[in-house]
Amino acid sequence: MNRRRALGATVVAVLVAVAGAGCTEGQPPGATNLVDPGSPAPQPNPTPILPPAPLSGKPVAETVASRQAVVVPVRVTARTTPVGLAEADLVYQEFAESESLHLTAVYQSQDAARVGPVAEIRPVDIRTVGVLHPFIGYTGGPTGFLDQLAAAGLPGATPARRKAAFPSGQASTAALRQAAPTGGVAPTPVFDHADSGTPLASQGVTPASRLTVAAPGHPTQTWTYDAASSTWRGKIGKTTVSTASVVVLTTEYRTLNVRKPSPRSLPGAKVYGSGTAVVVSGPSSVSATWRKPGQRLVCNVIDPGGYQVRLQPGTAWVIYAPETARVNVA
């Protein structure tokens, strides 16, 4: 009996244990039921982080951020209706002869189907945009100015050489971009741009809603802050333009004597050097200083604390104001 009975008892014990495991008795405290989770739910792709455009500070596609800038000089009088300025990342303004303005419009993050009226090349264009490595669309110019352009190594095209880039006598930035030699590089950033909530300057910031620039021999230029669009608005010729920031650089003006193809004299802003500045961006203003040592160096605009001013992303309008001009912020 002994061995057989012992073996039988063992088998019965095993069967009882197995049967007990299949019963629906309550689980001990702390135990959990395991459930097959199935396939994991797809996770949404994170929003891609777009790089900032080098000149406007606004987010753009990588292919746009890395492309070359295009520059078009524009001549404006009180009777002119300029076009294409809204798409510019930067516009530099020189007070020219006969109450006119000479604008240097720079396009990188956006293209403009029409820009004009296109003007001749002038020293202010060459000395301002040399640091940007652009392709320039212009109408020609005095012999001496063309020599300066060639010496600066800045490529460009005129209607006489690239008619397709100037439809209806006005420049197309996309067509100029196609006419540019291969290998063009993105421009060097010329301003710091503010993140959300970042002040215009480290110190000396004051509220601002109106800026006036009165240059002798020219109508007073008035810029007004529009809170609804967070832009500054001014009248250029017969066109109202909107810009994120206006930067006024006070500088010396000299008389440029042109001999070829026809003798004439015209004013020219001294772009290199240093001086005082007034900056408005968003609902704020600050008095600053500027310094640009040479053609291929950036013009730094420094706040009273010794730091770069930080503009709101968007178009910046830079005015070369003569030392005799009156600049007021309200």
Rank of each mutant, 00 (worst) to 15 (best):
R114G: 02
A31R: 11
C299T: 15
R210A: 02
V258K: 01
K292P: 05
K58Q: 15
T80D: 09
K58C: 04
G141W: 01
V35C: 03
A208L: 04
P187V: 05
A19K: 01
S274H: 14
G26C: 03
N300F: 00
A325F: 05
S109M: 06
V247Y: 11
A113Q: 14
R161Y: 06
T47Q: 14
A228F: 00
G20F: 10
G169N: 05
A180C: 05
P123N: 08
G153Q: 07
T206V: 15
L200S: 06
G26K: 10
S245A: 14
G197E: 08
A179V: 04
Q93A: 06
L85N: 08
N257M: 04
A9W: 11
K238P: 00
A201W: 07
R296S: 12
F135A: 09
Q110D: 13
Q308I: 00
A186Q: 10
R177C: 00
R210Q: 12
V318L: 14
A228P: 01
T240I: 12
Y320W: 15
R233Y: 01
S168A: 14
R4G: 11
P219F: 02
A6Q: 13
V83A: 14
Q108W: 03
S262P: 00
S287M: 01
T188D: 03
A160S: 13
L132P: 03
G156I: 04
K270P: 00
L101V: 02
Q68K: 03
P293I: 04
F135S: 09
V18P: 03
R67T: 13
Q27F: 11
V18K: 01
V72T: 08
A174E: 15
G30L: 08
G57T: 09
A152E: 12
R177I: 00
N45K: 13
T251K: 10
A119C: 03
G8V: 12
R296P: 00
P283M: 07
V246C: 04
V70C: 07
P29G: 08
S265I: 03
N300C: 01
R4P: 00
A157H: 07
A227H: 08
F135G: 10
D303Q: 09
L154Y: 05
N33A: 15
A165T: 08
S209T: 13
L132Y: 02
T182C: 00
T24A: 15
R4C: 03
V279S: 05
Q110V: 02
T139K: 09
D192C: 04
Y107K: 05
A316N: 05
R75I: 14
T222Y: 01
P82T: 09
P216Y: 05
G156A: 07
P207W: 02
T206N: 06
P267K: 07
V280T: 07
E323A: 13
P313S: 10
A105I: 04
P267E: 05
V248D: 05
A194H: 03
T47G: 08
P167N: 09
S242G: 14
T32S: 14
P52H: 07
G26F: 02
T206R: 15
S100G: 11
G282T: 05
T222G: 01
V309T: 10
L85M: 15
A88S: 13
